[in-house]
Write a protein that binds this DNA or RNA. Structure first.
Lengths: 345, 345
DNA sequence: TCAGCTTCCGGAAACGTTTACAGACTTTCC
DNA sequence: GGAAAGTCTGTAAACGTTTCCGGAAGCTGA
């Protein structure tokens, strides 16, 4: 493989000149720069990343930590692919690369992150699926590694985050259901302590209070973020003595499972039982009757994450002067038929 | 941040000794090693990856290239999450990390790969979604970077791959449909030149030949790997003058779209029109009537990919002496109701 | 003419590791 | 008792790049 030395020798210039030429430094003759660029292309030279980052102390890469276990992260129906694309769109403007770091399902997320940070393989991080208390945030702050989280947490202080508007979604979902005459409304929540569950529940309780409906903890069902989780939620609800007439789901993947269980019981969503889903996923678009849910642009979310991250990196702060971004990401209501009907009394 | 120098000074030993102790070299006193390990943990020292890989010429990381665009890859993100987990299980045994490299949707995959290879950020690569002719394979061979592809290609020569058994799946799907009395069978294929489309079509034509059914190119519909793609396939089929009685789908994401279009036309899958899907995805499990499709373990596939990759890496060839692995990955038939009925004549 | 400025380039140090080598000390064996 | 072997450690070079620094050459203006 050709290194900068071979390239320099081939051109009869010093390696310093080659480096300056390739990095767009002003103090190199235009003619020389052209020759260097041409030769680099011809010989297929690309700077060795290890050498470069050792010298510069930066890697020109940013990391996006996800979890391999769908259960843990919650989002799944092609959620991440869309977000990656948005992030990369921003990073490409600055010749930064995106490395996705999937935490193995059998490793502790904090330890995994610790390893990745310590390796200094990336200059900054996007961390998804934040928990109520999330040591990863302290860890990143201690390490002084720029980061943005996708989701909030009670840990850490004054760090940048972007969080889907779980609170708003819950509020609007309840509002719609109440407007349709429902009073006994169940909620499906995550089974772990991922933060979005708390935000969602907050929204639910706010809305119930506004509508002067007593909050009944027995109507909160915890389940996994999966089709099966949704099935179990519906199953539990149907088995209740005082059966609720509606359910609000926190995970996009739950909707199909809920529909399946309802169908098995001969119960038609939107006629006999109201369902409000979360994200309008490709899967949700298929359901019949159509699911009332909430729409967002994954790509735009990715762009926003990328820009917020750059804003926290000293090297780019001038270009993205937003400072510490803390943003609630809005979702747009997509009215469907699944919550259209009054409950049967 | 603490480097090996600070650690050495803190322990009053040389940096050489620290390095040897941490890397498990035999020529260091047990007592010393313990002290070093303890101090490293206490000070939170982890070797800087850039320095290490610069010296060793290897990065202790392997890359997994995917494409951000679902359309291009054909797989949903839950497909990859499962595979990642399997790969990591193998890599963890050798302290290798997995970096997922998502090719932006607006960048040419070969150029993206070229960049990643040239950066020398990984020691080896797994490349997914291979095309009929795929320059990435030549590129990797020229660069002498160990790699495995998920999917075959006509490019390159004697390189390791693992490919889902598209041919076998197509054969079995057709067999079942023919056994159920179908003769006019449509096939949904990818709209691009991804290799799996060719393998699938080969299988279809083999099976048709065995059953002495003429192959009718007009029954081959090309569409995107998505719910919408499936919808369009069904739409086209229903509009045909000589309407087929069955369809075999190549992408897991298509099934829901096909069902939706059939439902709209008041056509019941498995009664009025037969459908055979591809992978048994979480989504597929929900469909009603149940979808006839094919099951595989994503995690096992990941493990196999990981082991095949290590077998091609000189440093691990002794541990994984399989040599160049070329493996057809089997899928298990999951009989459903969607193809159960004889066609209406 | 020459001091001062600008433009361009080469030389060399530095980044943080690993590892070959040499050497100090201890043990073994005749 | 001394040579040989074994055990452990320190020293220093090397990996490929970027960047500071000094200096050569060309230009400007008095």
């Amino acid at each position: 493989m050709v290194g900068i030395r071979q390239l320099a020798k081939h051109l009869n210039v010093s390696i310093g000149t080659v480096s300056r030429a390739l990095n767009g430094r002003p103090d190199v003759h235009d003619e020389t720069r052209k020759r260097v660029l041409a030769a680099a292309k011809e010989l297929g030279y690309v700077a060795n990343q290890s050498g470069r980052s050792l010298r510069q102390g930066s890697t020109n890469a940013i990391g996006f930590m996800i979890e391999s276990s769908v259960e843990a992260t919650g989002n799944s129906d092609n959620f991440f692919l869309g977000v990656f694309d948005g992030v990369q769109q921003v990073l490409a403007r600055h010749h930064l690369d995106l490395l996705v770091l999937p935490c193995p399902s059998d490793e502790d997320p904090s330890e995994y992150l610790q390893r990745m940070v310590a390796r200094r393989a990336v200059d900054a991080m996007i961390v998804s699926a934040t928990h109520r208390v999330d040591h990863r945030i302290d860890l990143l702050q201690r390490a002084r590694l720029p980061f943005v989280t996708l989701g909030r947490s009670t840990s850490g202080d004054g760090y940048p985050w972007i969080d889907l508007d779980f609170e708003g979604v819950a509020n609007r979902a309840i509002d719609r259901l109440v407007a349709n005459g429902h009073r006994r409304i169940a909620v499906a929540l995550p089974s772990n302590d991922i933060n979005l569950g708390f935000a969602f529940l907050d929204g639910v309780r706010q809305a119930l209070k506004r509508h002067k409906i007593r909050y009944d903890p027995s109507l909160v069902i915890r389940a996994a973020s999966s089709e099966q989780g949704g099935y179990q939620v519906a199953h539990q609800l149907l088995a209740m003595k005082e059966r609720p007439t509606a359910v609000v789901l926190i995970y996009e993947l739950m909707a199909t499972g809920v529909y399946r269980r309802l169908n098995e019981g001969g119960i038609v969503p939107g006629r006999d039982f109201a369902v409000v889903g979360f994200r309008e996923s490709p899967m949700a678009r298929f359901l019949s009757p159509t699911l009332t849910c909430f729409r967002m642009s994954l790509r735009d979310l990715g762009v926003s994450l990328g820009e917020s991250l750059l804003a926290t990196m000293p090297a780019f702060a001038a270009v993205y002067p937003q400072g510490v971004v803390q943003k609630i990401w809005p979702l747009e209501l997509v009215p469907g038929e699944s919550d259209a009907q009054q409950p049967v009394r």
